[in-house]
Design a binder for these strands. Structure first.
Lengths: 189, 189
DNA sequence: ATCGCTTTTTACCAATTGGTAAATGCTTCC
DNA sequence: GGAAGCATTTACCAATTGGTAAAAAGCGAT
């Protein structure tokens, strides 16, 4: 819980009363490896803060291939922010890659925070913006890189992830086959 | 100017007085093809609304290759939002691909709007979020597609751009060489 | 119209990556 | 410990893409 508060306080000031309110609205949630935090076709019920574990965002293209387009680790918010706020069904999956512990806010509790804490909306906007910028800064450069450079970028940006995430997910994130990724890992050592 | 106001009103309500204030803070700016609207190493001075023309975002990687990572057309805001707001030097270029007409806000005028119009910050946050989501929704899928599919996605998402933008910029946006793009264009007809 | 310049196309070959399939390695569960 | 089920590696060949270079096309200015 301390991590959550510290994270939030990066983006704005809050007094103790407000912090206590936020704390009281957060619920602990544990997910097992492969469980979904959010699913395509369903309205996201929660927004979460990752205490332990790794999540991935993924969807299926028109060939039925599974595409991973983001990873989220500890000490970050996770969720389909836009769809959560607007009560619209999501178009992608958010899946636990490992066993995970979260602090989650239901839509009801989240809206209560928005209505109660002056400036909460600004803090939230900054958090969303940070997460979006991170996602784009990580993924966009991959477009112009070859497969080896993509993998090197990946282990630079997610140093602790290479060994926690199945190779197939990493390959899908990098836009290459797992055979190619395996070959690349052999060649760079 | 009407386009700007209509665009803004998508994201929140404003009364006539507020609209007039916004209008009074906007300045017309014309840029010639190849001019920079914003440059790496410099603090962005303006945020702009594109009335006419096309812009591209680009940067240089460690091999000196020029990478285009976004295009912005008419009826969109353009700028390095995060760096503009925080008065930090940008790390990329925003260049006019064609002759362009803009409505721009200086930092001073923009801050006056933020301090004067209640709810302006919320509207702005929504606009930023929309632009970021658009950018990521366009670029991220490219990672997992082959070159031909990338080009087809491009002309689907930017139907009016294929003929207004030099092939080299499009190729760089798609992460392929211009020779490859030229070959692809031959093969799909 | 012609010259000079830039953009786009084409060609050729080398390098990279994908697709299919099989082998190896690693867990989990009995 | 052994078997079954995944995950990862390896191999081979086909397909795609990149790099270099040259030709063709488009465009503006004189």
């Amino acid at each position: 819980m301390k991590e959550l508060i510290n994270y939030i306080l990066q983006f704005g000031q809050l007094n103790q009363q407000q912090i206590d309110l936020i704390t009281s609205k957060a619920t602990e949630l544990e997910l097992r490896k492969d469980d979904y935090f959010s699913e395509a076709g369903k309205i996201p019920r929660y927004i979460g803060f990752v205490v332990q574990g790794v999540f991935r965002f993924c969807y299926y293209n028109n060939k039925g291939e599974e595409i991973t387009n983001n990873f989220v680790e500890e000490n970050s918010f996770v969720g389909d922010y836009a769809r959560f706020e607007s009560n619209v069904a999501s178009s992608e999956y958010i899946q636990a890659v490992t066993d995970c512990k979260l602090l989650v806010f239901s839509k009801k509790n989240w809206d209560e925070l928005l209505n109660t804490i002056v400036g909460w909306d600004k803090i939230v906007a900054k958090i969303y913006q940070k997460c979006l910028l991170e996602a784009i800064d990580r993924r966009s450069p991959l477009v112009s890189e070859d497969a080896t450079t993509r993998y090197l970028s990946f282990i630079e940006r997610f140093p602790s992830l290479a060994n926690r995430v199945p190779l197939a997910f990493v390959a899908s994130y990098l836009g290459i086959t797992q055979q190619s990724l395996s070959r690349i890992r052999r060649n760079i050592r």
